[in-house]
Simulated scan of single mutants.
Amino acid sequence: QLCRPLDPGLAVFAAYWHRGYACHPAAIEAKVRELAPGLRTAWITTPEYAHTLPPGVRLLHPGSAAYWTALARARFLVNNVNFTPRMRKRPGQIHLQTHHGTPLKHMGLDLRDRPAAARGMDFGELLERVDRWDYSLSANRHTTLVWERVYPSGYTTLPYGSPRDDVFQHATEDDVARLRARFGIPAGSVAVLYAPTHRDYQRRSVPRLDAERVARALGPGFTLLVRPHYFHTPGEGVGGGGIGNMVSSGGRVLDVSGHGRVEELCLAADALLTDYSSIMFDYANLDRPIVIHADDWDAYRAARGTYFDITAAPPGPVSRTEDELIALFTTGAWCGPRSAALRAAFRARFCPYDDGRAAERVVRRVFLGERQELLPPVVPLAERRPAPAA
């Protein structure tokens, strides 16, 4: 197959090490079908996630003959992580690396002195993979500076925003209501999405928060949507004995770990509760309250390394203990004036391009070959109207 001509009409996509149709590649694939219908799209995923693919998208099983044929001959290759090291990129192929979030924690070459996070990473092999990239997607100036330093190569940076967040600018009040009904959020309840990140310094997941205790303390007016990091099993690391696939605390703690589209969870939630997850940068585009629970900030920063102090420049109020967290919600500080001011500064820094047309800019530049000056201009922050909270 490597000796046969490239297929100029084929684009191959993947995300999260073959965990289904998700993230920036999914938003870009959908926009390719809309703006470049002459292209055929194929998605690499395992049978476990095959149900996530929309109609009209060809399924490629990792390791199959069709998989290797597609990697050898597709004109376009899109992923939010790296493809297999066995892939041989050919002249004429275009590789778009979308990444999967704004970096707070150290990445790439910055992990050379972080053994707990690097876990035996082969940095020479990493640089060989980076050399395949033709384009690297960036959501803000901070991300551009980090990626170009920790993934050095000759690719072109595309400062176009986060395609997976485009939906935040297009979803309607009815869309939000439908999602809340699907997740079982009671009418009139304040839905808080709790999405913690992975800890490199722990051999196994240790609960950072007792979700059931927090739900009891907040009372019937609140509902917690619990979504552990995708490295963990459902309910792992949320305290209260684990959530699993059950609904607990009188229906006020909902396990949503099985739902693959995190953007839909964000749309359904009235507020985000996280620690150091990059989901905060995405959720800020909704201009809804964000609370940071930083109970182990010093340990996390020492083990992983971070690019700035999120407790000093947060997107909202910060708690250090579970009792402080409960107080932030029971006193109303989670959505008060200071919360809004912190969020406004955070959005100005990290959401400059996320106006709902990031995927369109990518498709027009990479797949259709349009010149930079002809791409849709970015809508200023003050003129954006993200989906309203319930």
Score class of each variant (00 low, 15 high):
250 G>A: 04
331 T>G: 07
26 A>R: 09
316 G>K: 09
113 D>G: 11
132 R>C: 07
166 D>L: 04
322 E>M: 10
340 A>R: 13
133 W>M: 07
346 F>W: 01
315 P>Q: 12
114 R>P: 02
345 A>T: 05
220 P>E: 07
269 A>S: 14
79 N>K: 06
108 G>C: 09
3 C>D: 09
188 G>Q: 04
206 V>E: 11
31 K>M: 11
247 V>Y: 05
118 A>L: 01
356 G>W: 09
134 D>A: 08
59 L>P: 09
170 H>N: 02
359 A>E: 01
164 R>A: 10
105 K>N: 04
91 P>F: 01
155 Y>S: 01
11 A>L: 09
241 G>K: 14
325 L>D: 07
309 D>F: 03
92 G>N: 03
364 R>V: 04
362 V>F: 04
58 R>G: 05
149 R>C: 02
117 A>L: 01
263 E>P: 04
248 S>K: 15
185 I>E: 11
21 Y>C: 11
9 G>R: 15
115 P>E: 07
95 H>S: 05
238 V>N: 15
173 E>A: 15
186 P>T: 11
309 D>T: 09
328 L>A: 08
350 F>Y: 10
276 Y>V: 14
82 N>S: 01
236 E>T: 15
316 G>A: 08
218 L>H: 11
354 D>W: 01
383 E>T: 08
257 S>F: 15
40 R>W: 05
287 D>P: 07
289 P>T: 10
18 H>N: 10
318 V>M: 00
342 L>Q: 03
329 F>E: 08
188 G>Y: 00
232 H>C: 09
217 A>H: 12
36 A>M: 05
293 H>S: 14
301 R>E: 10
88 R>D: 02
101 G>A: 06
333 A>M: 05
173 E>V: 10
6 L>P: 03
257 S>A: 15
35 L>V: 10
209 L>G: 08
120 G>K: 05
242 G>Y: 11
345 A>L: 02
359 A>M: 01
130 V>T: 12
193 L>H: 05
104 L>R: 09
74 A>T: 04
65 A>M: 06
363 V>P: 02
339 S>F: 02
326 I>F: 00
370 E>R: 08
